Computed example of a mutant assay.
Amino acid sequence: MEITEPYRQAWVEFKTEKGQTIRFLDKLFWNHSFEKYKKGQKVDVLYDPENPIQTAVTNDFIQRTTVSWWPVIVGMIVIMVGFVFRKIMKRKATELDKRL
Rank of each mutant, 00 (worst) to 15 (best):
T66M: 10
G75N: 04
V78Y: 10
S68F: 11
F34G: 05
Y47C: 06
E35L: 09
W69F: 15
Y47E: 07
V57S: 05
F29V: 10
K27Y: 08
F61T: 14
T21Y: 04
Q20Y: 09
K36A: 08
P71R: 07
T65F: 12
I53Y: 09
Q63P: 00
N31K: 15
Q20S: 08
F24S: 02
K39W: 03
K39V: 09
L28F: 02
I73E: 01
K42F: 03
L28S: 01
V72K: 09
T58Y: 02
Y47L: 05
K39N: 08
G82C: 03
M80W: 13
I62T: 10
I22V: 14
T55V: 10
T55K: 03
F34S: 09
V43L: 04
S33W: 10
W69I: 13
K38A: 10
V78K: 07
G40Y: 05
Q41Y: 00
K27P: 02
G82T: 01
A56Q: 00
N31C: 02
T58G: 00
W70R: 12
L46W: 00
N59Y: 09
N59R: 07
P49I: 04
M80A: 15
P49T: 05
G40T: 05
D44I: 00
L28W: 04
Q63W: 04
K39A: 03
I62L: 13
F34H: 12
I73R: 07
S68A: 15
I73A: 14
W30R: 06
V43R: 05
H32V: 12
Q63Y: 07
V67T: 10
D60F: 03
S33C: 02
G75C: 06
T66Y: 13
E35S: 11
R64I: 12
K39H: 06
D26G: 00
V81P: 09
E35W: 04
F24M: 09
V67H: 08
Y47I: 08
F29C: 01
N51G: 02
N51S: 14
F61L: 14
Y47K: 04
V72G: 04
S68T: 08
D48A: 07
Q20D: 11
V67A: 12
V43G: 01
R64H: 00
K39G: 00
T65E: 11
V72H: 05
F29T: 05
M80E: 10
Q63R: 11
G82K: 12
E35K: 11
S33G: 01
V57P: 01
I22S: 02
E50S: 14
R23M: 08
V81D: 08
A56G: 01
I62E: 11
D60I: 02
F29S: 14
G75K: 06
V72A: 10
I22A: 09
G75T: 07
K38P: 02
F29A: 12
T65P: 00
I73V: 15
V43M: 01
N31W: 14
W69G: 03
L25I: 15
D60A: 05
V81M: 13
D48S: 07
K42N: 14
V43E: 13
T66K: 01
M76F: 12
A56V: 04
I77N: 12
D48Q: 06
E35I: 00
T66N: 06
P49M: 07
N59S: 13
Q63D: 15
M76K: 09
M80V: 14
K42Y: 11
H32S: 10
I62D: 01
F61D: 10
D48W: 04
T58V: 15
R64E: 13
E35Y: 06
P52M: 03
E35G: 10
